[in-house]
Write a protein that binds this DNA or RNA. Sequence first.
DNA 1: CATCGCATGTAATGGGTTACATGATTGA
DNA 2: TCAATCATGTAACCCATTACATGCGATG
Lengths: 183, 183
Amino acid sequence: MARRDQSEMAILGGLSMQPMTAYALREAIRDVLGHFWSESFGQIYPTLNALEEKGHVRRREGPRAGSSIFEITESGAARLHELLSEPITTTPPRNGLLLRLFFGRTLGEDRCRELIEEARADAERRLADYDALARTVTTQEADSPDLPYNLITIAAGRHGAQATIGWADEALALLPATKKATP
Amino acid sequence: MARRDQSEMAILGGLSMQPMTAYALREAIRDVLGHFWSESFGQIYPTLNALEEKGHVRRREGPRAGSSIFEITESGAARLHELLSEPITTTPPRNGLLLRLFFGRTLGEDRCRELIEEARADAERRLADYDALARTVTTQEADSPDLPYNLITIAAGRHGAQATIGWADEALALLPATKKATP
DNA sequence: CATCGCATGTAATGGGTTACATGATTGA
DNA sequence: TCAATCATGTAACCCATTACATGCGATG
């Protein structure tokens, strides 16, 4: 699966929920898929044009002059299913935090402690967000057949955040203690 | 921090452990930092040349004709410290597994279950790897001042893998049960 | 003498972000 | 009427992977 197709998949997926403008699509991707996916305008507009040419989306008059609402076609739905079925492409890992910590002796222990504490605080915030999101979604989409799938992705975020918190605590304990003269 | 500098950081970091050839550097990055970092030849060779021009690394005769051993200079060490101190740049998330699961109704429940089970099995494998790695490193680098930092990165992998396992179990339970006629 | 692992590099390609440029509509 | 938001699109740039091309040296 060409990496390019990844954007196609997200865009067709978004439109499969409901027709919308490119702008709204970008917002939907940011707000709904934001914790595990992202698309920029620079990808969305060209990809939509390509999808239109292939007949996978149809363009209709938008809410204002010059704007368009895109809607997925049947061939688009088929294409989405096909894309979803292809093997997952993973990108090589690049974790800037862990790289810095690995060279922690060069960076300095204090800075390492700070980095870990920041990561922990951030995870704590995300954890609260996921919990709130799970509650909102559960009530607002109570009857939607998409609810379980939505909850599964939220659960992934929650488990990830919890793992970060657990790791941070362990990491802080592993950090060599700075020796300070006791007064 | 330009994204470009990320490769510089990893390369200088690698050479700060010990001087080596570009080829060995790539292997070291793959084998030692592999679970949270990666560099390809296409990055390593040009970056090393750039670093040499700036005087951050020095080139010496390698083990065979035409090969070079690179060694970090003092200015290189300073540069490394500077790079490590810069704010962490994060790339926007793109999780192909979660994207597929989010559109799980389109993909189909059976395929979703398979994907989750694969992810779980993979995490299980990684977990075993991290545990083994932690043991090896603890004995082999028992006296190294880098040991705690090394263990911190391994712990991150372990916690991440455990989180995936926990998530997978929860996700499988969340999946809507396929209704089958009871015989 | 063939093959595998060490070793170096470049070029094509792909993909993606960011910044820029432009304009319509709405609400304060 | 002025700012903010909705809306569309392009171009520059950057980074990174991949594939390719090349050759030495040891081991069987």
